[in-house]
């Protein structure tokens, strides 16, 4: 099936699998371990999508923890449930909340957090329908492709 998938790298990917379940409610949908118990490949599902969780497998595939907390891209989680409760669950699991839940001009309520190795995650829930005109008026942006 054509589409996008993201892969995230961790110094301790097995700890990440546990944490992502506890914090975000992801479910482990695939895991390969070698005879020594090392993680070779894994996938965690949420809704109809999944992310791949892996080790730092080359000099250019690093956890933010290994590069001073820097991220070059982030993964967004789209919820259909209560985002404030989701944020509290993540906080209890040890997420560092970088931006508390706030409703945005385009109709989504969002928060941002860092996981224990420094990956930044953006979490969104659509809470109201906003027209293109309303969004343009609120933001001062010219918007193309608004559905």
């Amino acid at each position: 099936m054509a589409g996008f998938r993201s892969a995230l790298f961790y110094q301790d990917p097995k700890a990440a699998l546990k944490w992502l379940e506890e914090a975000f409610g992801f479910e482990l949908s695939m895991l390969l371990e070698d005879a020594e118990g090392n993680l070779a490949h894994s996938q965690m599902s949420f809704g109809d999508d999944y992310v791949m969780i892996g080790q730092e497998w080359s000099a250019d595939h690093k956890s933010p923890k290994s590069v001073g907390g820097k991220n070059t891209q982030t993964v967004s989680i789209q919820l259909d449930g209560d985002i404030d409760a989701h944020c509290e669950r993540a906080r209890r699991a040890g997420a560092e909340i970088v931006a508390e839940p706030e409703t945005q001009f385009y109709g989504d309520r969002t928060y941002r957090c860092r996981d224990p190795e420094g990956h930044i995650w953006t979490v969104s829930q659509t809470v109201k329908t906003v027209s293109r005109e309303e969004a343009e008026a609120a933001s001062g942006l010219k918007i193309t492709g608004w559905i």
């Binding site: 949908s29 390969l32 070698d34 005879a35 020594e36 118990g37």
Partner: peptide, 11 residues
């Protein structure tokens, strides 16, 4: 130890 292949889904 032994190798492990794990897969899961919801029904």
């Amino acid at each position: 130890m032994t190798s492990k292949v794990f897969v899961s889904l919801r029904v």
